[in-house]
Simulated assay, not measured.
Amino acid sequence: MAVNMYNQSTFLVIKIAYMYYIENYSQNEIAKILKISITTVSRLLRKAKEDKIIEFVIRDPYVGCISLEKKLKQIFGLKDVIIAPGVSSEMGEEECLEDDEEVKKLVALEGARYLQRIIKENDVLGITWGSTIYQLINFLNPAQKVDATFVTLHGSIAGFRNELDVRTLVMRMAKAFSGKHYCLFTDALMSSKQVADIIKQERNNHVVFQMFENINISINGTGSLYPELNSILAKPEFMSREELRSLQEQSVVGDIALRFFDKEGKECQTELSDRIISIGFEQFKKIDTKITIASGVYKAYTILSALKGKLIDVLIIDYQLGMEILRLHNELDQSD
């Protein structure tokens, strides 16, 4: 029987693969231990793949995330989609987390890592309030320093938790990156358009409103007002029943940066719009990279509407929410 003198020892291929992938030796260390060259180690690792001695398997729940990401990215023309699987890596089985806060933390972690991948010096980031943004900041690596600028996209929401206030969040995020921060030192909702116009012209606030033009990245959550009134902004602490009714008459479905929009992602025009201290709706749309971070299936219709209105460039969500957005899209598409 003819034997190819250039055939490598199968055992050596197996041993190198085991040392590299299981025992976590570096290629340099393997070369020294086995007294072979680094190029031989690299070549035999490739052979282990080619001969299927080793195979890489991504389990089904995680493959589903990649498939969903591709579909959402293609359908809505997004720059990026990040899907948190909604399973805990510490669980022995692919068990879905039913705790909304745990799912939110998974999404926030993905948001933090994404932000740290894309942020660069001289970026100007607009930030909104919210519990998901709060969690995102908790996951930021304080060792990553970037000379960027962080700006509040709106005023404060009176009567709600201070740690979720947009000013607190912007200061914390700027501190995490060792960047600069600018804040609107005012409540978000004024009693009249006249008062709002005066507040906007105060020196500090005027500077922030001018900076809105320089924002190239926004990071925001989204409030949901359809099919149920889940947004905190729908509570009487923020707006009256009459103001809410006015929005509902225009079929409001959600808000981003305290700007309310309908099922097509268009701004709901009421006198409330003139009284809010926030970046303008059309001005927000011009931001180059608008990142929306959300969790919870109940936000599907709101997110879908924002996608229709081109209010989102990068979507970071959990798997269940993503699947519901896709289902709603397909359902509405078939009914048209």
Rank of each mutant, 00 (worst) to 15 (best):
6 Y>L: 08
8 Q>V: 10
11 F>E: 15
19 M>G: 02
21 Y>I: 04
22 I>Q: 13
22 I>T: 09
24 N>A: 06
25 Y>E: 07
26 S>P: 02
26 S>E: 01
31 A>L: 03
40 T>P: 06
41 V>H: 02
46 R>N: 15
49 K>S: 04
55 E>L: 07
63 V>S: 12
67 S>E: 15
73 K>N: 08
77 G>W: 02
84 A>Y: 11
84 A>W: 00
96 C>V: 11
110 E>N: 13
113 R>K: 14
114 Y>W: 07
124 V>F: 12
132 T>C: 04
135 Q>D: 14
139 F>K: 10
143 A>H: 10
144 Q>W: 00
157 I>V: 14
158 A>R: 10
158 A>K: 11
163 E>W: 06
165 D>V: 02
166 V>L: 02
193 K>E: 15
193 K>C: 07
194 Q>G: 06
201 Q>D: 15
202 E>Y: 12
211 M>Q: 13
216 N>A: 08
218 S>R: 04
248 Q>S: 11
248 Q>E: 15
251 S>W: 00
252 V>E: 02
260 F>R: 10
262 D>K: 01
268 C>L: 03
275 R>W: 00
282 E>K: 10
289 T>W: 01
291 I>A: 05
297 V>S: 12
299 K>P: 03
302 T>D: 03
302 T>M: 07
304 L>V: 01
315 L>I: 05
316 I>W: 01
318 D>R: 06
326 L>D: 10
328 L>I: 12
329 H>T: 06
330 N>G: 13
332 L>Q: 12
